[in-house]
Design a protein around this nucleic acid. Structure first.
Lengths: 396, 396
DNA sequence: CGACTTCTTCCACTCAGAGGACAAAGAGTG
DNA sequence: CACTCTTTGTCCTCTGAGTGGAAGAAGTCG
């Protein structure tokens, strides 16, 4: 089939597309209730959208007490590709125009293998999804990378954990290979957009989304929009000092949050504890697997291992201290905790909450929910799909 | 004279008013270059503004090579009142519609005397300005208070250093007394707006404005707009933990930045040092005045007193640490340091810069100026005038 | 003085959008 | 089933915002 070529011709059409995306199939009448346009105007714009093929008729709606309305919906053949490149694995998903995930695959891979190898992998994963009959082609793709991005150009800048990616024209290259429009953003920002679109952050205007994975980052949403900072490095909280004169960090400083708590730090601490004989549980796992990861710590904690729980609590305290500072500064309406370590679950959450509620002022914490992300690994890919759909559903 | 009653009738007129406010008198042709409207449309809107009296003719402009243009400007009789209520003093100023300060008076007063006493004082200061012939009345007033504000209603909420102000209807009360529209905001936000309008932050979209006075606060500007947070307490960085298990703070926690460095903390430290005989300079000043303030420390430092310099450096380090965290998080394009302690000047600035440049990542600090505010005590009142003019120059 | 620019006004024309009238299609009622 | 009432969709007219061209007014420059 011919892929999506049209774009909304004006702001009204763009608004209608987003309503259909976020609210699913809808009747003209219901749309009219939401957009504050005259019926005639609405009819004209819907007609134009139908002509472009972005929107199709979808049967009759139930009666609301009078004549039944004809439903319309976004073209069911539209497909978006959501790609979430993590430090150690890649998530790729296909969604329809309503951003529902139709297929999702995950594959371990180290970003440090460089952009060429990574994108080869991404393309083969995308091909696999296509081959399974979920899509005949892609109308757009959103890509998340684990480092700062110059957003308008879609190019990673000075990514500490991604040597070889600096300045690589991700957007352009992938747009070529996939043959569709592409947008690139920091993975944390995409997670925030995902939780905003389909997760816990619906209907919250200003919130923070802290992602604890191999590193630690924070998505910042202001007035419903992701804030990226002057150079695209906003939310880079992994290198905030959490412990004065603490551990040396890869960045050259000491005591960075990331050096004391993150997937990588946790694995290292656990290994050390196991070798020192502090925990039989962890030692057994180390023996079995040859190396420990955050997942092992989570499992050990779930099994009641005191050392593992201590590690998590300790890390949660550190993280909570930093978040407390951010809460005082930013006064968000919600804090979402997500990322690979969500498996650490409520032990971690409790530690973070304790610190934040203790250290920040009541006015800021009074009505501040601190919750785990709802979408897990799909947050990133949904956010990626959302990113490209926001782009494509805005006037050209 | 009759005060300003009209408001711009549409977004075009609002835009023209702001252009005239920020750019001074201007010809129709020059305005046309900036607004992307057809000449005819522009002429119509200007005509309407002239009818309302908000704008008046102002002679002929210089020729740009052809027929000379007729200048127009904002009504010269328009007057805004800018009020900046600090913890220990009150600033009141009158500005014209271009937000130029025509008169400015300052009077010491403790906010803790409560809103009634303070506003009595404010009104008498405003009356004094009026009596000196600078204004026949006020078309609007902006008020800054040293604590969080529920912005839409213009009401202070839970202000720690302002007992008796919680919930006081500042906006409504002053609007009654002054007989003109009033807007209320946190003093730090107003300082940020002032520096943005007429100071160092012109043409910067995203920046932080750290005010170190009796307390410490931070104005946050995102995309040219002040960000106030969910409950109006954004930027309240005085109670971020700067020293683990540090000094007890009035808020109930330990180690808050404000407890270790602020006008109040500095005065206390200096007094202590003087009493312990660590500094002859400070001891002499204590003897002479009976008490020490931040100003004394600044003077002693200027005179080369080692103890005073140490105090400033120490405080700068602490503040710099906190700011470094904020820079990593927020990735601003500029950091402005202002407030009462600007007298501490470059010693303080150097200490802050050192910390920030050392602790934050290069991508965030690479092109990040950290500078002292340019406007000193007028930043607040200019920001206040800007606040109300933004309000009045927007469509009703 | 004449040629060329720039500024301003006037006017005809286009077009988005509102809103009313009316027809179509359903629900509810006796 | 006949009737009324409601909701939906379409058509048509009207208004007002805005554009762009033409022409006059008021300059500059050689």
């Amino acid at each position: 089939m011919r892929r999506m070529t049209a774009r909304p011709g004006n702001a009204h059409q763009a608004r209608l597309l987003t309503l259909l995306r976020d609210g699913g199939p809808n009747s003209r009448a219901q749309l009219g209730d939401q957009v504050d346009l005259s019926r005639s105007k609405l009819a004209v714009e819907v007609e134009r959208l139908l002509e472009t093929g972005l929107v199709v008729a979808d049967g009759l709606a139930a009666s609301r007490g009078g004549r039944r309305s004809h439903n319309i919906r976004l073209a069911p053949a539209l497909r978006f590709l959501g790609v979430d490149i993590g430090a150690t694995s890649i998530d790729v998903a296909v969604t329809n125009a309503e951003l529902e995930v139709l297929g999702h695959i995950n594959q371990p891979m180290d970003v440090r293998e460089g952009p060429v190898a990574v994108f080869e992998q991404v393309l083969s994963m995308a091909a696999k999804l296509k081959a399974s009959g979920l899509a005949e082609g892609f109308d757009g793709a959103g890509i998340g990378v684990p480092g700062p991005v110059r957003f308008p150009e879609g190019v990673p800048v000075a990514p500490p954990i991604m040597p070889g990616w600096d300045g690589f024209p991700v957007r352009e290259a992938l747009s070529q290979d996939l043959g569709c429009p592409v947008m690139v953003d920091n993975d944390v920002n995409l997670m925030a957009m995902g939780e905003q679109h389909a997760g816990v952050a619906r209907s919250v205007g200003d919130f923070l989304c802290v992602k604890i994975g191999t590193g630690i980052g924070c998505g910042i949403v202001v007035g419903g929009e992701v804030y990226r900072g002057t150079t695209g490095s906003a939310g880079d909280i992994g290198h905030i000092q959490a412990v004065p004169d603490g551990r040396p960090c890869a960045c050259g400083n000491r005591g960075c949050l990331e050096a004391h708590f993150s997937g990588a730090a946790l694995a290292r601490d656990a290994t050390e504890a196991a070798q020192q004989g502090l925990s039989e549980e962890l030692a057994a796992r180390l023996e079995a697997a040859g190396a420990l990861s955050a997942v092992d710590v989570a499992a050990a904690a779930a099994a009641g291992d005191a050392t593992a729980l201590d590690l998590i609590r300790e890390g949660g305290n550190r993280t909570g201290q930093v978040i407390a500072g951010l809460v005082s500064f930013f006064n968000p309406g919600l804090v979402v905790i997500g990322g690979g370590v969500t498996g650490l679950g409520h032990t971690l959450l409790a530690a973070i909450r304790t610190q934040v509620y203790r250290q920040s002022l009541p006015l800021a914490t009074g009505n501040l929910p601190i919750v785990l992300g709802e979408l897990g690994p799909t947050a990133g890919v949904i956010g990626a799909a959302r990113l490209i759909s926001d782009h494509l559903f805005s006037p050209a």
